[in-house]
Structures are given as structure tokens and as C-alpha cells.
Simulated assay, not measured.
Amino acid sequence: MTLRSVDLRKEPVEEVLNRVERSLEVRLDQEPVVRKRRSLGARTDRGTWVRIERRGLDRIGVQGGDGTASAEALLGIAKPAWLAGVAWRDETEPVMWRADETELLPGPPVGSAVVTEDPQLSEEWWAAMNASLDALASQHTNRFATPDTETLTQELVTGTIHSVFPGGDTAVVEWRPAHADFNWANVTGPVFCVFDWEDWGMAPCGLDAANLWGASLAVPALADRVRSERRADLESRDGKLMTLFVAAKILGPYADPDDPRLGAARETAERVVKELQTG
């Protein structure tokens, strides 16, 4: 059966929401529901949050789609506690639905995935971000990250980079746990917290820093701050590869010609390519 392309911002979801309410024995505040392309979110009547995701069975792999629940074992990271979850297979399509109930976030997301204005974050925010990313990288897991629901492999890294920057050695040296979707829509302010752990797992060192850098390129001072804060990650060989990995996604065949990040992404990527060739 072919998986139908679905955008949950446009689909009727009342039946899904009602099923989650019955399964978790909770009432959802359905006005408003936060709608994204493949997920839904809503507050509950017991002061918690429920996130619901639709994911094709071919995108689940050996991890089972339980990223938020499994992340509860991670220590030293500012994230909402996981409380309960439920999953079921769709009756008509090769799709798994999963709902996870967590604590409420300490504040709103800093912005959309890509920001165009400096969010003016405090020194405490940056310190908490660094502490969380350092704690995450020091831990262990059998999971592999699934950015954009694709399992992150050496082949994916090489193929993505070479699609824009052909040639060159792209062999990853060090793999560490990563959030894998670390952008401004998945972190809060003014108090730092990182959420949406569906795709976390092992990834090349520097992926999270590179993702946040790429999401900041429309604000040069912010992108520079990210690179400064995560210099150890981004100046490592693997961090440079992840810079190219993220830049290739920005500059690749589906690039938006009006994306304000294009120039900065290409400029940095060209410098990094030269550094890798000479280093």
C-alpha cells in the first residue's frame, strides 16, 4: 500500500484527538490545537501537554517511534518530563500514530524553525543550552538519529554533502547522541528547554550545533554566536562535515531562491570545504 502524503495542518483530525483523549483518559483543549505538517499538540485539563505524531511504518525502523519516551532516560538535560504515551496502527493506511503526554514547557518556543530576528537571549540561556548539549553528547544509546524521519547513516551524510559539494572525504570519525532536530522552534525562552525528541539518537559530532547555526543564518550575529558557543563541536572534523551537511540542505536542489540564508550558507560552506581539503 502506498503511503499518502498528508499535511496535518489541512486534514480533519477530530477522530484522532478523540481517540487520544479516550486512551490517555484526558481532555484536550482543542481550541486551539497546534498543527504542524506531521504532528499535533494541545494542552490538557490536567496541566500537561500532548503531542501526536503521524509517521509511516517505513519510517519507524528498529526504534519503534518512541523517541520522546526513550529520551526520559537521558540525564542532565533541560527538557519536559515524559509522563505517558499511546500508539496505534492506522486501520486504513501503513501509518503509526503516537501520542505522548509531557510536562508543560517553561515558556514559548524561541521562534519558528528559522529565525529572521535576533531573539536576544540571556547569558543564562546560552549556558543552559551548552550544559544540555554537553550532557547529551556524553551519554550512550543504541538509537540512531532520524532527521526528517530518515535514519542518519554514513551513506546519508555522504550523499547529502556530495549532492552539493562533490568529492572529498566525508567519513565520520565520532558519533554521539544528538537531538537531531535542534532549531529555534524546538527550544524555549527566556528559560532554556529543548523538546520534540522524536528523532534523537546517534549522529556525527556537531549535528545539533550545525542545525542551530543553519537556522540562524538570516541573522548573522546570531549565527556567529552559535558558532562561538559551540566552537569545539563545529571546528572538529565531524563538525565541519555537519556544517556541510546542513548547508547542502539549504543550498540543494529544493532550495528556496528567496531564502535569506543562501549567501551565508554558501560562503561558510566554501570555507569549510577548503579547510577539510587542507586539514
Rank of each mutant, 00 (worst) to 15 (best):
R237G: 10
C193F: 05
D258G: 15
F165W: 07
G85N: 13
G167P: 02
R143M: 08
A81W: 04
V115L: 08
T153G: 11
T149A: 09
E15C: 00
W82E: 10
D208L: 03
E174G: 08
P260E: 12
E53S: 07
R98T: 12
T149L: 12
L251D: 11
W82I: 06
A128K: 11
I52W: 00
L152P: 10
W200H: 11
E14Q: 08
L121M: 04
T278L: 12
E14C: 00
D259K: 02
T158L: 08
E198H: 04
G65R: 04
R9W: 02
V173K: 14
R35K: 12
L251C: 09
W125P: 10
F182M: 12
R9F: 00
L83A: 11
E123L: 14
F182Y: 14
V187D: 06
N142Q: 14
F245C: 01
E11Y: 03
L17F: 05
A137F: 07
T151H: 07
L156P: 05
V86T: 13
N18C: 07
R143A: 10
H162S: 10
R59V: 02
L262Y: 14
Q154A: 14
Q120A: 14
F144G: 05
D169W: 06
D208A: 02
A87I: 00
R176S: 05
P80Q: 06
V114W: 08
N211L: 07
R89Q: 11
V273Q: 11
E72F: 01
T68K: 01
D256E: 14
